[in-house]
Protein backbone atom coordinates (compact mmCIF):
# COMPACT_ATOMS: atom_id res chain seq x y z
CA UNK A 1 0.00 0.00 0.00
CA UNK A 2 1.39 3.36 -1.02
CA UNK A 3 1.87 5.93 1.74
CA UNK A 4 0.46 9.37 0.91
CA UNK A 5 2.56 12.54 0.93
CA UNK A 6 0.62 13.83 3.91
CA UNK A 7 1.07 10.56 5.82
CA UNK A 8 4.82 10.55 5.10
CA UNK A 9 5.19 14.08 6.47
CA UNK A 10 3.18 13.28 9.60
CA UNK A 11 5.00 9.99 10.18
CA UNK A 12 8.41 11.63 9.71
CA UNK A 13 7.65 14.34 12.24
CA UNK A 14 6.01 11.75 14.52
CA UNK A 15 9.19 9.68 14.46
CA UNK A 16 11.19 12.76 15.47
CA UNK A 17 8.76 13.36 18.36
CA UNK A 18 9.01 9.72 19.44
CA UNK A 19 12.82 9.75 19.38
CA UNK A 20 12.81 13.05 21.29
CA UNK A 21 10.55 11.55 23.97
CA UNK A 22 12.87 8.56 24.39
CA UNK A 23 15.94 10.83 24.45
CA UNK A 24 14.25 13.07 27.03
CA UNK A 25 13.58 10.05 29.23
CA UNK A 26 17.22 8.97 29.02
CA UNK A 27 18.46 12.53 29.61
CA UNK A 28 16.12 12.88 32.59
CA UNK A 29 17.48 9.68 34.09
CA UNK A 30 21.06 10.89 33.65
CA UNK A 31 20.24 14.25 35.24
CA UNK A 32 18.81 12.51 38.30
CA UNK A 33 22.10 10.61 38.66
CA UNK A 34 24.30 13.73 38.34
CA UNK A 35 26.38 14.43 41.42
CA UNK A 36 25.48 11.07 42.84
CA UNK A 37 21.84 12.07 42.87
CA UNK A 38 22.51 14.89 45.33
CA UNK A 39 22.20 17.99 43.13
CA UNK A 40 20.25 20.89 44.68
CA UNK A 41 16.52 20.69 43.95
CA UNK A 42 16.50 23.96 41.97
CA UNK A 43 19.27 22.77 39.64
CA UNK A 44 17.70 19.36 39.07
CA UNK A 45 14.28 20.92 38.47
CA UNK A 46 15.70 23.52 36.05
CA UNK A 47 17.59 20.87 34.05
CA UNK A 48 14.58 18.54 33.90
CA UNK A 49 12.31 21.43 32.85
CA UNK A 50 14.77 22.31 30.08
CA UNK A 51 14.65 18.70 28.84
CA UNK A 52 10.84 18.71 28.98
CA UNK A 53 10.61 21.95 26.97
CA UNK A 54 13.10 20.62 24.39
CA UNK A 55 11.07 17.41 24.04
CA UNK A 56 7.83 19.36 23.66
CA UNK A 57 9.38 21.62 21.01
CA UNK A 58 10.49 18.51 19.12
CA UNK A 59 6.83 17.45 18.87
CA UNK A 60 5.83 20.79 17.30
CA UNK A 61 6.56 19.78 13.66
CA UNK A 62 4.32 16.75 14.13
CA UNK A 63 1.51 18.92 15.54
CA UNK A 64 1.88 21.48 12.75
CA UNK A 65 1.75 18.85 10.01
CA UNK A 66 -1.53 17.33 11.17
CA UNK A 67 -4.57 18.43 9.21
CA UNK A 68 -7.63 20.02 10.91
CA UNK A 69 -9.47 16.79 11.57
CA UNK A 70 -6.44 14.92 12.90
CA UNK A 71 -5.56 17.81 15.22
CA UNK A 72 -9.12 18.08 16.45
CA UNK A 73 -9.13 14.33 17.14
CA UNK A 74 -6.00 14.67 19.28
CA UNK A 75 -7.28 17.80 21.07
CA UNK A 76 -10.58 16.13 21.97
CA UNK A 77 -8.91 12.87 22.96
CA UNK A 78 -6.37 14.67 25.11
CA UNK A 79 -8.98 16.79 26.86
CA UNK A 80 -11.65 14.15 27.46
CA UNK A 81 -9.66 10.92 27.44
CA UNK A 82 -6.51 12.32 29.02
CA UNK A 83 -8.36 14.18 31.75
CA UNK A 84 -10.54 11.19 32.55
CA UNK A 85 -7.58 8.78 32.53
CA UNK A 86 -5.37 10.98 34.69
CA UNK A 87 -8.27 11.84 37.02
CA UNK A 88 -9.16 8.20 37.50
CA UNK A 89 -5.54 7.29 38.27
CA UNK A 90 -5.26 10.16 40.76
CA UNK A 91 -8.48 9.21 42.54
CA UNK A 92 -7.38 5.58 42.59
CA UNK A 93 -4.05 6.51 44.16
CA UNK A 94 -5.73 8.63 46.84
CA UNK A 95 -8.25 5.87 47.58
CA UNK A 96 -5.49 3.27 47.74
CA UNK A 97 -2.82 5.18 49.67
CA UNK A 98 -4.95 7.50 51.81
CA UNK A 99 -5.42 11.26 51.75
CA UNK A 100 -2.32 12.01 53.84
CA UNK A 101 0.07 9.95 51.71
CA UNK A 102 2.88 11.19 49.47
CA UNK A 103 1.01 9.67 46.52
CA UNK A 104 -2.07 11.76 47.34
CA UNK A 105 0.04 14.91 47.66
CA UNK A 106 1.80 14.09 44.37
CA UNK A 107 -1.56 13.57 42.68
CA UNK A 108 -2.85 16.88 43.98
CA UNK A 109 0.28 18.73 42.85
CA UNK A 110 0.10 17.13 39.40
CA UNK A 111 -3.58 18.02 39.03
CA UNK A 112 -2.95 21.60 40.22
CA UNK A 113 -0.02 21.98 37.79
CA UNK A 114 -2.10 20.62 34.91
CA UNK A 115 -4.89 23.06 35.75
CA UNK A 116 -2.43 25.97 35.99
CA UNK A 117 -0.78 25.03 32.67
CA UNK A 118 -4.18 24.71 31.05
CA UNK A 119 -5.19 28.14 32.39
CA UNK A 120 -2.02 29.84 31.15
CA UNK A 121 -2.31 28.35 27.67
CA UNK A 122 -6.01 29.11 27.51
CA UNK A 123 -5.33 32.76 28.40
CA UNK A 124 -2.44 33.10 25.94
CA UNK A 125 -4.54 31.46 23.22
CA UNK A 126 -7.28 34.08 23.64
CA UNK A 127 -4.89 37.01 24.04
CA UNK A 128 -3.18 36.12 20.76
CA UNK A 129 -6.54 36.14 19.00
CA UNK A 130 -7.70 39.55 20.17
CA UNK A 131 -8.54 42.04 17.47
CA UNK A 132 -9.80 45.60 17.46
CA UNK A 133 -13.28 46.02 18.94
Amino acid sequence: MEISKHRKKVLGAGALAFVAAIAAGIAGGQILRLGGGNLPFAVTFALLTFVLIAALLATRPWWNRLDDVERDAHTNSFYWGGTFGAGTAMLGLVAWAGTQSDLARGSLITFAAMTAGYGVFWLVWWLRRRGEA
Binding site: K5, H6, K9, D67, V69
Partner: peptide, 19 residues
Protein backbone atom coordinates in the same frame (compact mmCIF):
# COMPACT_ATOMS: atom_id res chain seq x y z
CA UNK B 1 -6.36 13.45 0.00
CA UNK B 2 -2.93 13.15 -1.58
CA UNK B 3 -3.59 16.00 -3.99
CA UNK B 4 -4.64 18.46 -1.29
CA UNK B 5 -2.27 17.02 1.33
CA UNK B 6 -4.65 15.88 4.02
CA UNK B 7 -5.38 12.39 5.34
CA UNK B 8 -7.79 10.03 3.56
CA UNK B 9 -9.75 9.80 6.82
CA UNK B 10 -10.27 13.57 6.70
CA UNK B 11 -11.82 13.39 3.23
CA UNK B 12 -13.97 10.48 4.42
CA UNK B 13 -15.16 12.36 7.53
CA UNK B 14 -16.02 15.51 5.55
CA UNK B 15 -17.85 13.59 2.82
CA UNK B 16 -19.85 11.66 5.40
CA UNK B 17 -20.87 14.95 7.08
CA UNK B 18 -19.17 13.76 10.28
CA UNK B 19 -16.81 16.73 10.48
Amino acid sequence: ADLIEVSRQTINAVEADKY
